[in-house]
Design a protein around this nucleic acid. Sequence first.
DNA 1: TTCATAACGTTATGTTATATCATTATCGAA
DNA 2: TTCGATAATGATATAACATAACGTTATGAA
Lengths: 167, 167
Amino acid sequence: MMTSGDVESPFAMPGHDHASCIMTALDGAEAICARRGERLTPLRRRVLELVWRGHSPVGAYDILALLQSERGRVAPPTVYRALEFLCRQGLVHRLDSLQAFIGCGQPGNDGDGRHAAHFLICQDCGTAVEVRDGQLDGAISRLAGRTGFAIADETIELSGLCAACQS
Amino acid sequence: MMTSGDVESPFAMPGHDHASCIMTALDGAEAICARRGERLTPLRRRVLELVWRGHSPVGAYDILALLQSERGRVAPPTVYRALEFLCRQGLVHRLDSLQAFIGCGQPGNDGDGRHAAHFLICQDCGTAVEVRDGQLDGAISRLAGRTGFAIADETIELSGLCAACQS
DNA sequence: TTCATAACGTTATGTTATATCATTATCGAA
DNA sequence: TTCGATAATGATATAACATAACGTTATGAA
Ligand SMILES: [Zn+2]
Ligand SMILES: [Zn+2]
Ligand SMILES: [Zn+2]
Ligand SMILES: [Zn+2]
């Protein structure tokens, strides 16, 4: 599975045990919600599982189609409400540059809410990896301090080619 | 008018001479397109002018409505094609977090194409300021180098409150 | 049990963006 | 100048993404 220490080669996980990624994500979500007194209902849990189908961002309507294939009539608000809950809990992130969603690999590391997430997105294989970089965080903090700007939300998404896809 | 050296207090321009901002942007766009052999047609020029109505991002359908009010029937592709051209020339940037567009204050500084743009966006007054920060650029470069990632496109948008709006 | 609230279902609509094909403008070559 | 290639625009339709509004059901505490 993918671990949170894989920053040096975040894309290097071909043929990994993805079932383990999913299980870790679901178990972690259960624990986080239990601790917070939030309700990870069957629907929300299933949507989270569908978001975790892989390591590529998934569109809301992709999830909708998957839900419809297993439950019959499902309407967009059903999906958007579940995604909103999952984003609020920091279990899922929205990638604004793609209008799509991806599971968070390090949820709950920032107290009780969501955290700023920074992404590398491969335009070839579609993989998106959440990265944490102290220098980047520092540069952002200093920029904010220098300009007197109070950051509430960060959208940092770097698109390009991962190492494996450059050959 | 706003100059490209205002990085230290990028939001401090209340009551400035915005007509001068617009003129500078249009004149610069003319010069850049002429140099590149690209055609800044009346429509494209007008869309650029409308994007420069202020220092807040403008939605494509806002521009559409403005165009319709002065030309009668105008369809979405007309606006999107003009915006696509202006983005391609680096004269306008799209803010993914807002699904909106804003004029570039420093176009043509990077040879013949668009450049990476980083923004501070005030959630109160709506102003968006394009910033250039060497430390941020450096942190991004090092992150890419360290992970073997080849960046093609950067979406960096920091939302929050500008200094003036925190009181 | 009863009530208040949260979650979900359902219908309708709003918002953003693009595919496709017809028409017109532009510009260089014959 | 006329022709023909290409770029730009017009026009119609539809795709893709997201939310408003309201009714119903589930949940849990008093
Ligand atoms: Zn996996
Ligand atoms: Zn890749
Ligand atoms: Zn101005
Ligand atoms: Zn402000």
